Simulated assay, not measured.
Amino acid sequence: MTITHATIRAAGPADVEHILAEYREAVRNLPPEESANLLWRPYQEFRGAVENGLFFVIENASGDFMAGAGVFDFADPGEKELGMCYVKQAWRGYGLQALLLRVRVCAATLGQVQDKGAGKHAATDYAALITGVKPANAHSAANTSELGFQPLATPSPALFMACAFCRTPPAPDSGRNCCCDFFALADAGRRQVIEKTLQMENWSRTRNGHQLIVALKVRHLLDLDFRTTLQDVVDELRGDELRLEAEPVGGIMEMKSDGEARGRT
């Protein structure tokens, strides 16, 4: 068995042109049906993700690009989009898209946790984490569904802003506003993704007698304070799940002084 060692890390400003060159090459050289799945972003959004430490690359020991993806902010802090995922053809089948999704969920969540000064049990409304997938891209749709993303019935207008830069817009008579279907990560999915990612020491997959081992060189997963904060998020979301499970249908049950239960809607 042959083994390739790789690293996932946050991209820096010095990586911008190299990453863009990889994406441009993919658009030029991939078959049209494959390059159509590479969803481009405006340059300023891409650079903003890099500067915010929210664009991640996977590269081999020689520094060659293998895959990349980012988290993109909107004017509304209540939403973030996970997008611009690209895995080079030679490295497909090793679960790198799923790894990039996991890392981005953790990083995006860390960017919106409550201030510790607000109290340990203060509620946090986490921004919705949304991703767009072309209907024909069954593999990506399966990856997002497996991690707990659910169809988003009413996408916000901000999600359509990038459509102006789309290379494969829907046909005028298709009845679609966008060539993508949108999915949002449910709270239970967020909790499970973060919890399982915190347990990972590396990412290892084997395909056709070849093993790929990806070292996690991501500060969001290595820094002790960040890990503690992510574990706090897991505990909070699990507590929310348990409270919801304990609530009877129709309202929260209270006990009157005589022991009779009554509902509060």
Rank of each mutant, 00 (worst) to 15 (best):
Q89R: 12
S62V: 05
D235L: 05
R227N: 06
M161V: 13
A162F: 03
F74C: 00
E79I: 15
E245S: 10
Q150D: 07
K120P: 00
E236R: 15
L101I: 14
L100K: 02
F65L: 11
N37W: 05
L100V: 03
V214G: 05
R264T: 13
W91N: 03
L100G: 03
A90T: 14
A164K: 08
E81K: 06
Q114W: 03
A11K: 05
Q231K: 09
L147M: 14
Q231M: 09
S140F: 12
K116D: 15
E245M: 10
V105I: 13
T229H: 04
K88D: 12
E33V: 11
A108W: 05
A158C: 13
W91P: 01
A123I: 10
R102P: 02
A90M: 07
K256M: 13
R238S: 13
F149P: 02
L152S: 09
V233T: 13
A90N: 11
L152E: 08
K88F: 06
F72N: 05
F55W: 09
G148Q: 12
A122Q: 15
V249N: 06
S174L: 00
E33W: 09
A75I: 06
Q89M: 04
V233F: 11
C163G: 01
Q150C: 08
T206N: 03
C180L: 15
L100N: 02
A162L: 01
Y43Q: 09
R9S: 14
G12M: 03
E146C: 04
R219N: 14
R176F: 06
Q211W: 00
N202L: 01
Q150G: 00
A67V: 10
H18W: 08
L216Q: 01
G239Y: 06
G68Q: 07
M66N: 01
E34S: 07
G95H: 00
D76C: 09
C85P: 01
D240V: 15
Q199S: 08
S140N: 10
F74S: 03
F183V: 02
R243S: 13
L39E: 07
G239M: 06
L110Q: 07
G117V: 03
G250Y: 02
N52T: 09
R264W: 11
G148C: 13
L152Q: 11
R47F: 08
A127R: 09
F74V: 01
S62L: 13
N52K: 15
Q89F: 00
R205N: 03
G68W: 06
A6Q: 02
A61Q: 15
A122V: 14
F165T: 10
N60A: 09
E79Q: 12
S204H: 03
G117S: 11
P155F: 14
L99F: 01
L20Y: 04
A188D: 07
R262A: 08
Y126Q: 11
A36Q: 14
G263S: 14
M66K: 04
E236D: 14
A246I: 02
